[in-house]
């Protein structure tokens, strides 16, 4: 997060944009470690739908979150064209399954608007704001919150022994 603040001081941040279920999203480039093709996951028992399972990322067991399912649009029907965006914050790494990666944008920090109050709820807690680039609206994601939501989101099947 330190890097983000540093860039923020300079007034500009770089984002990688990607699309999922027809919407454009952006994530701070400092949080993105790599982008790789889709590989089948090993499902995790009692996980929510949007947690597609885990894959082997050079020896690291990487949980993969289906962005489409996370937004409530159902599970992505995956094919070889889908990509996994590998996000790393501190020592935590997760993969984000999206349709495609589109661009790198560098909006002025003043251009980023907060998400409208009316649309805010617990489920969109990981939205940081909105920015318009080339007349397209892009939702900026807060990857830290997205990661945290994986922990808090105890699946209904989880039991306390």
């Amino acid at each position: 997060m330190e890097e983000i603040n540093k860039t923020a001081k300079e007034g500009r941040r770089q984002f990688i944009t990607f699309c999922s279920s027809g919407q454009e999203f952006a994530a701070d480039i400092m949080t993105i470690r790599e982008i790789r093709g889709w590989t089948p996951t090993t499902p995790l028992p009692n996980a929510p739908d949007h947690v597609r399972g885990v894959i082997n990322l050079r020896g690291v067991v990487l949980p993969v979150v289906d962005m489409r399912a996370r937004l409530g649009h159902g599970i992505t029907e995956t094919n070889a064209k889908h990509v996994i965006v590998v996000v790393k914050i501190a020592e935590r790494v997760i993969g984000l399954l999206v349709d495609a990666v589109s661009d790198i944008i560098t909006p002025d920090i003043d251009e980023i608007q907060a998400s409208p109050d009316l649309t805010r709820d617990a489920e969109s807690d990981f939205v940081e704001g909105i920015v318009v680039v080339d007349e397209k609206m892009i939702t900026i994601l807060n990857m830290g919150h997205l990661m945290d939501s994986l922990r808090e989101h105890a699946a209904p099947g989880t039991l306390v022994a």
Binding site: T41, T42, L44, A47, V54, V61, L150, L159
Partner: peptide
């Protein structure tokens, strides 16, 4: 994988098999 995800009841950990799958 608990650090990247969280504890799952009934699962101790993961491993990677010869075919590269978890």
């Amino acid at each position: 994988f608990e650090n990247n995800y969280r504890h799952i009841e009934g699962v101790a950990a993961a491993t990677i098999l010869g075919n590269g799958r978890v």
